[in-house]
């Protein structure tokens, strides 16, 4: 297994190189001089020599291929440059933001798994029942609702009108004065709405997928065989069918990360959540190129590792896929 992980990690390197290359060239294709944005309007008043110095500082005075090589080398070293806007190292900004995004996405995945998988199973086992119809239709509808609108409506009802949850931020004003458990509760309280909005759409797609997968498995001959051997229906479903249906779900969760990150960009902006998504949006609206390049790259890198994790889990739980590559999926 160790060798296999190493092999997969090595295989990811060209992909990562591709990612930072794409990011670099898209941003460099940008019309206009990045310096204009850095200096905003007051260009005319600044000493041209100072501008030249700044260009040197950001490496913008060099030919593009040199800049590219430097960018790759810097990323490899973990140096992502300095934000135009915050005038701080981008890696620091990311290090502060990523934990917040992880909180949000991980909890969203947990919520998704709890609701999505459960509803999917119930719906498949009780195929054609009223509940099944509600789940299939409901999941489709919920999946279609745009997250930002759902977020606003929930804020309108639960924060503005009912006052149950805070409208935004990660903690209350009096956070500093709370006891430890009070602090934990306060943080969780602030997480409820954003996690729900992010997780519920994802849960809807899981429920649909789980239902279809389990229905497929229930039609397999080994399930019929298990029944023919006299096992109880509950045992047949939980032990013989469910595990088979759950294995491919792992891949689905691997593929979900990009959607969750995309969703986080919007949700974080609405809830003033200081995560990576909001950082990316800020970087875009402020044309903060170093920050922009870094957040987008980071999003892609996280996706790559998410998929890798899913693959490894798959190999780990499914006896048919061995990591010597005996059987190709």
């Amino acid at each position: 297994m160790g060798w296999y992980i190493l092999k997969r990690l090595l295989q990811a390197i060209p992909l990562l190189l591709g990612i930072i290359t794409v990011t670099f060239f898209i941003v460099r294709l940008a019309p206009g001089d990045p310096m204009d944005i850095y200096l905003e309007e007051d260009r005319g008043q600044i000493d041209p020599q100072a501008i030249e110095l700044l260009r040197q500082k950001y490496g913008l005075d060099q030919p593009i291929h040199i800049q590219y090589v430097k960018w790759v080398a810097n990323v490899a070293r973990g140096d992502l440059g300095e934000s135009f806007r915050y005038r701080r190292p981008v890696s620091q900004l990311l290090a502060e933001a990523i934990p917040y995004t992880l909180q949000l996405t991980i909890l969203a995945v947990v919520l998704d798994a709890l609701i999505g998988i459960t509803l999917g199973i119930i719906s498949a086992v009780k195929q054609y029942s009223v509940l099944d119809k509600i789940v299939t239709l409901g999941s489709l509808v919920i999946y279609a609702i745009p997250g930002f609108w759902l977020a606003l409506m929930l804020v309108l009802v639960f924060s503005v009108n009912l006052g149950w949850f805070p409208t935004s931020q990660t903690r209350s004003m009096d956070y500093g004065f709370l006891s430890f458990s009070g602090k934990v509760l306060d943080r969780l309280w602030h997480l409820v709405l954003p996690v729900f909005v992010l997780g519920v759409a994802s849960a809807a797609s899981t429920a649909r997928y789980m239902r279809n997968r389990l229905l497929e498995v229930l039609n397999e001959e080994y399930v019929l065989s298990a029944r023919a051997r006299g096992f109880r229906e509950r045992v047949v479903i939980l032990n013989h069918a469910l595990r088979n249906a759950l294995i491919p779900i792992i891949t689905i969760y691997g593929m979900k990360l990009p959607f969750l990150l995309g969703g986080a960009a919007i949700i974080e902006s609405i809830f003033a959540w200081p995560g990576m998504g909001r950082l990316a949006v800020e970087a875009v609206s402020g044309r903060d190129y170093p920050l922009l390049m870094a957040t987008i790259t980071m999003g892609a890198v996280m996706t790559v590792f998410g998929n890798l994790l899913a693959d490894l889990t798959y190999v780990w739980v499914d006896p048919r896929v061995s990591y010597e590559g005996k059987k190709q999926r």
Binding site: E221, L224, S225, P319
Partner: peptide, 14 residues
């Protein structure tokens, strides 16, 4: 006791 047509399909793969 029952034996099914497709031995490959009648055993639980995992």
């Amino acid at each position: 006791g029952m034996i099914f047509q497709e031995p490959g399909a009648a055993l639980n793969p995992i």
